[in-house]
Design a protein around this nucleic acid. Structure first.
Length: 739
DNA sequence: AAGGCCCTTCTTTTT
DNA sequence: GAAGGGCCTT
């Protein structure tokens, strides 16, 4: 098969680009994956590059799998030795292969966010720091950021007292991690970069091997990831990256769309190719998407176009509350199905936060319509699933202290806080991890100077668990993973513990069985490989399109997918854009990109819903339609939504809709309120003006600048330092000049 | 050591 | 509104 046939000129140019650095900026639905897979096939088939000299990295397993399949399809078989996988999976493999150069063995375990948090808690305890004053999650966020930025504990440059603390916690955390023979997600990337930098022979080996390095979703790379691919491609200089700045939505994970600009700076002679033809959506949907995204600064302008002219207009509707919103979604799906416009399986319902899914699920259940839910309480995040995986991790790597502490007393076997403390002290005295110390209870080294110092009861309880563990470790060599699970579930008493006669217990047991089924499905994976698989997969990966049912998912989870019909619900200020994004312009831009991603998932029809009032976390609040809705040209919209679309006064004019003298209806009241709250949009403040912010308190305006229809205000708050705020969102109250 | 009760804490989450 | 953590009692 000709790998160039059927491509448009820009795609062709990208696929056949000569050696060197190539930057492909690909709009949504422009055939990004197509370009990547054809490029790989082209290199192998037309340029004679050996598959093992090519590395292609993606972010998700799903993307990796799809690319593998498509490359295989193009070449009529899976190429031998091609490195194609997620960043994390590729790095995990390198760390196992190169373990001899590292301070962890090749049977290391991978810690997820939960594991990381409990490690931070332990680090805080060891340092005698109050976890009220230094919330573990915040500490962890900083640690993650350091790792994403390739900053080691000893290279942290603390800019504040809090950062100084964070650096100390980071150092302690690293010790615990090393002692547990574990890496966290951030390490997988950072440790590989550090390894390359510290062992020249390893660096050379990989650089010489990979003649071509290709990167998918480049806009989502963080500093460590960019550093990694730059090093790998340094020898041959063939770095081919594909991305879309407008779809960068993982800032909070360290993704930095600025890497696109860095790439251009680092490779000034790079070839830049724009993919602007969209093969997915109607022109109306594209126009709306572009109108929304164009208000973001610092982006490479693209003019998306499609040959799919026409198509239905975008529907914008206001519901009274989230129940009515959910019902309207269900009714609309019904209507579309009835008129044969779409099958329920063509539909996706997207929302900003998982908490929004419940009302929709309830409405769907009421109407007897099945649905597919992505994410929510992630399968691998469930307590019982994590418990069983912790048992397995412990068997694979008894040094794993997070897993040990998680399950050592589950179900209760008389090992309480005091016993654990004496185990930890003993381990520290022996200079071992608690798990290693425990293992030595059964092999006779628990005598003389190394004798366990705690009470006899504690010793007995610990020995019993140590014996159990030793038995599992012995059998892990011979039993397939599924059988090993059966043994552990039985002997640990975990099965009886779950099957306590309640429905909830039964549900939990079924989840455990689901995990067992996954293990049974891959009988030739050994324990280490199985656990690596489990650590590096997510729920979206399991999404199949066999069932004819609507899909419920967050906007984040929707990236990379497409659906004929898309509903986005909860388009209200506070939800999308989310409250927590209001203060930082950077985050506000990201919210906009998130909306853009949602819109561009739609092939034929787009439905946008917002509520007049919404209850979230118990309390009910009146809402304002999302500010992003205003940016969609009215001509593209139909529907009955106040202030949005045709025949309606624009929102900024709402002040005059107030009824004179008559007590206003609730709706009217809220509209005039909205107008008042909006009055600060684009407001410019005098330097030196005193202001009050609802959260930050009083401060002084340092700078105030217009920014497309809005303003960015820099305020110095006492004790908090400088904050950059959006004029329209900050709800700043001006204060009279005192003194 | 274990179980119950109150309190806080809530985004998004490719790996 | 729900779930996990911390504190208290048994």
């Amino acid at each position: 098969m000709d790998v160039v046939h059927g491509l448009n000129p820009q795609q062709q140019q990208a696929v056949t680009a000569p050696d060197g650095a190539v930057l492909v900026l690909a709009g949504p639905g422009s055939g990004k994956t197509r370009v990547l897979t054809h490029r790989i096939a082209y290199l192998i088939q037309h340029q004679g590059v050996a598959p093992w000299r090519i590395m292609a990295v993606t972010f998700t397993n799903k993307a990796a799998r799809e690319m593998t399949d498509r490359v295989a399809g193009l070449l009529g078989g899976r190429p031998d030795g091609l490195t194609l996988g997620t960043f994390h999976a590729c790095c995990a493999r390198i760390l196992r292969r190169e373990a001899e150069h590292l301070d962890r063995t090749s049977s290391y375990v991978i810690y997820d966010t939960d594991d990381q948090e409990s490690l931070v808690r332990r680090a805080l305890k060891k340092l005698n720091l109050d976890d009220k004053k230094y919330p573990p999650r915040q500490m962890l966020q900083r640690i993650d950021r350091y790792k994403n930025e390739l900053i080691k504990p000893d290279t942290v440059q603390p800019g504040s007292y809090l950062e100084e603390i964070a650096a100390r916690v980071y150092e302690q955390y690293e010790q615990l991690l090393q002692e547990s023979n574990a890496y966290d997600f951030g390490d997988l990337l950072m440790q590989v970069v550090l390894l390359l930098d510290s062992v020249p022979a390893v660096m050379q080996a990989y650089q010489q091997r990979y003649r071509h390095v290709l990167v998918d979703e480049f806009q989502d790379t963080n500093t460590a990831q960019y550093a990694l691919v730059k090093r790998l491609a340094a020898e041959h200089g063939n770095l081919f990256v594909v991305g879309d700045e407008d779809q960068s939505i993982y800032l909070f994970r360290g993704a930095d769309w600025r890497n696109v600009r860095r790439f251009r700076d680092d490779f000034p002679e790079c070839q830049t190719i724009l993919l602007e033809q969209n093969y997915r959506s109607t022109q109306i949907i594209l126009d709306a998407a572009q109108a929304v995204i164009q208000r973001n600064p610092h982006r490479t302008h693209k003019r998306l176009f499609t040959e799919r002219q026409g198509g239905g207009q975008i529907t914008v509707e206001e519901a009274h509350n989230e129940d009515e919103e959910a019902q309207m979604v269900v009714d609309t799906i019904r209507r579309l199905a009835h008129s044969n416009e779409a099958r329920p399986g063509d539909v996706a319902i997207m929302y900003r936060i998982n908490a929004q899914s419940r009302r929709i699920e309830e409405a769907l259940m009421r109407s007897g319509m099945p649905y597919r839910l992505v994410g929510a309480l992630r399968f691998y995040g469930r307590r019982e699933v994590k418990d069983v995986i912790a048992f397995l991790h412990l068997v694979q790597n008894p040094a794993d202290s997070v897993s040990l502490l998680r399950v050592i007393n589950v179900p209760s076997r008389g090992i309480g806080a005091r016993t654990i403390a004496s185990l930890e002290n003993w381990a520290a005295a022996l200079n071992r991890s608690p798990g290693d110390a425990l293992t030595h209870m059964t092999d006779g080294s628990d005598v003389g100077a190394g004798r366990f110092p705690g009470s006899n009861t504690a010793h007995v309880a610990l020995s019993r668990f140590a014996a159990l563990l030793a038995g599992w470790v012995a059998r892990s060599e011979i039993l397939p993973v599924a059988d090993l699970m059966d043994v552990i579930l039985e002997e640990s008493g975990y099965q009886r513990h779950l099957q306590d006669g309640t429905t909830e217990g039964q549900e939990r047991w079924e989840n455990v069985q689901e995990l067992r089924r996954v293990a049974a499905e891959f009988p030739d994976l050994n324990l280490t490989d199985f656990l690596e698989q489990v650590s590096l997969v997510s729920d979206v990966d399991k999404l199949t399109d066999e069932v004819n049912a609507p899909t419920l998912l967050t906007l984040h989870a929707a990236k990379g997918l497409e659906f004929p019909i898309v509903f986005i619900v909860g388009l209200e200020d506070g939800i999308l854009p989310h409250r927590h994004s209001w203060e930082e312009p950077d985050q506000m831009w990201e919210e906009r990109r998130l909306f853009y991603v949602g819109i561009t998932r739609a092939k034929s029809r787009l439905f946008l819903f917002h509520c007049f009032r919404r209850s979230l976390w118990g309390s009910t609040e009146y809402t304002q339609p999302s500010r992003f809705l205003e940016d969609i040209p009215p001509a593209l919209i139909v529907g009955r939504s106040p202030g949005v679309g045709i025949d309606r006064p624009s929102r900024t004019d709402w002040s005059w809709s107030r009824s004179g003298g008559v007590l206003p209806e609730p709706a009217e009241l809220s509209r005039s309120d909205r107008a008042v709250q909006r009055s600060a949009a684009g407001a410019i403040y005098m330097t030196g003006q005193r202001v009050r912010h609802p959260q930050f308190g009083e401060g002084i305006v340092i700078e105030s600048q217009p920014a497309d229809g809005d303003s960015v205000v820099t305020v110095a708050f006492s004790g908090l330092g400088l904050k950059r705020l959006m004029g329209s969102m900050a709800k700043l109250e001006t204060l009279p000049d005192s003194r």
